[in-house]
Design a protein around this nucleic acid. Structure first.
Length: 235
DNA sequence: CGTCTTTGACCAGCGC
DNA sequence: GCGCTGGTCAAAGACG
């Protein structure tokens, strides 16, 4: 579509996430505390997708690295640090007794977000009821990343499975905001997807939380390889 | 039948 | 206190 057109200064060619996900095993610094950026090796015929990074605190701050490829694995597996584009958001609860109880129940989750509210599955219903009774409960300190992708598709295929649980019309926006939750039963990661009304070709995806499980599609890709490696190494 | 989306209702936070 | 807004729930329906 805009293959010939040079992207705007802050808009960068995006290697589709899925194509980079299987690179997990070859990423050199998977345990690096920072995001990994590497020069893109774009398929020239790839879609017109492009990517911007910004802080989620409404302070557009394109990543200075002009040649950027997101390490989705680090990003979503919690191996990315709070340096750079990750922000924390804490909503302080008031001191009602009910909310005190919730805070007590949630106390561990504020320091162990990987198990937030899901330490015991049988307690999830209780938690949901509490949440329903009190509306929005106090948000734990959870990393949030906001991406702007130039794409015709609203949904970024990041390799994880998401279930839509809501959609809202947003003020000053012609497009609704969609709310998704990771379908993994122990995972509490959410994301919001919204198309910019200023530039309808841009989709803003905000991730909240950190996956505590491997990427299903990544595992689908790797499992046959691992089996093959095990088979070959048995000789 | 299980999974997922849609959508109206509900609730809490916030600004006035 | 009231109204607006954003986030979530959950019932109903669609789909494979």
């Amino acid at each position: 579509m805009d293959g010939q057109k040079p992207p705007p200064p802050t808009t960068l060619p995006l290697q589709p996430p899925l194509t980079s996900l299987p690179l997990l095993t070859v990423l050199p610094q998977i345990n690096s505390p920072t995001f990994l950026f590497s020069p893109p090796s774009l398929p020239s015929s790839s879609s017109s997708s492009s990517l911007l990074l910004k802080n989620s605190n409404s302070n557009p701050n394109p990543n200075p690295n002009p040649n950027l490829e997101i390490d989705w694995i680090s990003l979503f597996s919690g191996q990315a640090s709070s340096r750079g584009i990750v922000t924390d958001e804490i909503m302080i609860s008031s001191n009602t007794n009910r909310q005190k109880t919730i805070s007590q129940n949630m106390s561990a989750s504020t320091t162990t977000p990987l198990h937030e509210n899901h330490e015991h599955d049988h307690e999830e219903d209780k938690g949901n009821k509490m949440r329903r009774a009190t509306g929005r409960m106090r948000k734990a300190a959870r990393p949030r990343f906001a991406f702007q992708t130039r794409s015709a598709d609203d949904i970024l295929d990041d390799g994880y499975r998401w279930r839509k649980y809501g959609q809202k019309a947003v003020k000053n926006s012609a497009y609704p905001r969609s709310y998704y939750r990771c379908t993994h039963h122990t995972c509490n990661v959410k994301k919001q997807v919204q198309r910019l009304s200023k530039d309808t070709s841009i989709v803003v995806t905000t991730y909240e939380g950190i996956h505590n499980h491997p990427c299903e599609k990544l595992m689908e890709t790797l499992t046959p390889l691992l089996r093959q490696m095990q088979f070959l190494s048995s000789f």
